[in-house]
C-alpha cells in the first residue's frame, strides 16, 4: 500500500504534480490499477486535458467504482476536480457524481479571455485547506465547477466559480497547486496532513 499515489492515465501534467509533492519531501508513486486506487492512503487525480477523455480512461482502466468508493483522502486537480461533479458541458458522458452540480464552459468577454490562464485571487476561503483569503493562485482552464456548500475557496472570472472544494476527505483544486508558488505548496501540505 502506498502512502501517496498519483493516478497516471497517460497524458496530462502528472510529472508536474509529482514534482510538486517531491518538493515537499513526499514520495509519491504513480499508479493506474484498481487495487492501488482502492488501497492508497492518499490519492491524487491530476488533470488530463479533457473531462470526457479522462472519464473514458477511468472506465477503460476499471477505476470508476474504486474512485467512487474511496473514503481516504483523495485530491482532484484541475480536470481531476471537475470529474468529482455530476456532469460537464465538455462531454456527454456522466462524471463521477461525488459532488452536486454541473461543470460549465467559461464564457469569454473582452476582459475575460478563455481559457482562463493566470494568477487569480481566491475569495471566501475556508479554514483547513492551507489557503488564505485573496491569495493569488495559478489557473489554466476553459470549464469551471459551480459553487456549492462544498466550496472551500471561490474565484471570480466571468462569474463566480469553485476554486477549491472539500467534502470530508474528498478534495478538489481547480487551480494548479504544483504551479502556484508558496500558497500552492501550503495547499498540498494541508492535503498531506489531512
Amino acid at each position: 500500500m502506498s502512502a501517496l499515489a498519483i493516478l497516471d492515465l497517460g497524458y496530462g501534467n502528472v510529472e508536474s504534480v509529482r514534482l510538486g509533492f517531491v518538493r515537499l519531501g513526499a514520495e509519491p508513486v504513480l499508479v493506474r490499477d484498481r487495487r492501488a486506487v482502492e488501497n492508497a492512503e492518499r490519492l491524487v487525480v491530476p488533470g488530463v486535458g479533457h473531462a470526457g477523455y479522462a472519464m473514458e480512461r477511468l472506465e477503460a482502466h476499471g477505476l470508476v467504482d474504486a474512485l467512487k468508493a474511496r473514503v481516504r483522502p483523495t485530491l482532484g486537480i484541475c480536470v481531476g476536480m471537475q470529474l468529482l461533479f455530476e456532469a460537464s458541458d465538455e462531454c456527454e458522458r456522466p462524471l463521477l457524481g461525488l459532488l452536486p452540480g454541473r461543470v460549465a464552459a467559461l464564457s469569454s468577454s473582452p476582459t475575460t479571455p478563455v481559457p482562463h490562464m493566470g494568477w487569480t485571487r481566491v475569495k471566501d476561503v475556508a479554514a483547513g485547506v492551507g489557503l488564505e483569503q485573496d491569495e493569488q493562485l495559478y489557473f489554466a482552464h476553459s470549464f469551471a465547477a459551480p459553487e456549492s456548500p462544498y466550496s472551500v475557496a471561490s474565484m471570480l472570472y466571468a462569474g463566480r466559480h469553485a476554486a477549491a472544494v472539500r467534502k470530508d476527505n474528498l478534495w478538489g483544486a481547480q487551480f494548479h497547486p504544483e504551479r502556484s508558488s508558496a500558497p500552492g505548496a501550503r495547499y498540498l501540505e494541508a492535503f498531506l496532513a489531512s
Binding site: 497524458y11 496530462g12 501534467n13 502528472v14 510529472e15 508536474s16 514534482l19 510538486g20 518538493r23 495559478y138 489554466a140 494548479h176 504544483e178 504551479r179 502556484s180 508558488s181 508558496a182 500552492g184 505548496a185
Partner: peptide, 26 residues
C-alpha cells in the same frame, strides 16, 4: 513552482508529450 512553457522544435504530438511528461506546463 510557477508555470513554464517550452518552445522550439515541437512539431508533433509525440514531441509535445515528451515536453509535458518532463514537467512543462505548456
Amino acid at each position: 513552482d510557477i508555470p513554464f512553457s517550452v518552445a522550439g522544435g515541437i512539431d508533433s504530438v509525440a514531441r509535445a508529450e515528451a515536453c509535458l511528461a518532463a514537467g512543462a506546463d505548456k
